[in-house]
Design a protein around this nucleic acid. Sequence first.
DNA 1: AACGGTTCTTGAATCATTCAAGAAAGTGCG
DNA 2: CGCACTTTCTTGAATGATTCAAGAACCGTT
Lengths: 169, 169
Amino acid sequence: MHPPADYEQMLRESDLRVTRPRVAVLAAVHRHPHADTETVIAAAREDLDDVSHQAVYDVLRALTAAGLVRRIQPSGALARYEARVGDNHHHVVCRSCGTIADVDCAVGHVPCLTASDDHGFTIDEAEVVYWGLCPACSNPPDQHHPDQHQPARQGQPVGRKRETDDRQQ
Amino acid sequence: MHPPADYEQMLRESDLRVTRPRVAVLAAVHRHPHADTETVIAAAREDLDDVSHQAVYDVLRALTAAGLVRRIQPSGALARYEARVGDNHHHVVCRSCGTIADVDCAVGHVPCLTASDDHGFTIDEAEVVYWGLCPACSNPPDQHHPDQHQPARQGQPVGRKRETDDRQQ
DNA sequence: AACGGTTCTTGAATCATTCAAGAAAGTGCG
DNA sequence: CGCACTTTCTTGAATGATTCAAGAACCGTT
């Protein structure tokens, strides 16, 4: 998506030291939008065989603090990261399979930043999460997802990787 | 806030068995809006000395599924519960101390339910979280909160109870 | 090239939440 | 009212994403 040099420059422009774990993680997040940490670790290891998971956690935190990536964490789901930053876009989350898609702000730019009554808070960001069912989960053409098509009243997104265990914390 | 009988009736109307843990937890959530699980457990035990934490977890799940309480979980924070349901209101969260306040929908009723491009998703809910600083944290009149008044660029809300440890998961 | 501070590696700990199995309690029925 | 059936609660242990800690390796600078 970008040549490695670009990632190095992004890091330098944010006053972050350029290290191989950082370049690998930044590239991984660019390659896999909305990936959870486990996926980012795996993707980073494609570039850098033996990055420790701890390094990835540290890097994700540094990149997030620097604004190079954005951390999103829909209610009840694991943390996910994306590289599209600075444009105040939002997300749709599938209640059934947990898939996330980007949604541009519906109400104009720097939108809903005006709450009806802000209770004296100094608001600097409005985060919108749309909940629903993705195309695949809302019209089950064949039996691919046998038993997960009753959208629970207050259902939480279920995991994607593990087959038998969708514990969440 | 309500006489116990009201809670019993709410439960029955939702086809839930009326048990003492359920009444205690429902009352606790009504008494403590936006409380995390630990707080709900403590509050429930005011009414019912020795409810197990597991029972509270079970009850909160049942109440949430029934729509009697709503579970909210701002990015990076612990799960919290509130009894105000069915009116699609939103929340402001203080980045510094984690305080949550209610905010009525800014853009009319059943609002932002129209995403600009829904990617084929069937959207049934739009959840809005406003991030910022609460009055107490944004104008520090005295030195009550010595070192937590630099709103980190992507800061997460910090815990409220523990003094030395604000780990979050 | 060496220094000093930052970042990585390795390995262990944390803790909210969940799982499991048996006991207790709630509800409908005779 | 008391029984049977099912759901819910109690007790106690497990889970697993994330964090902590200490020392080694690395980055940018003097």
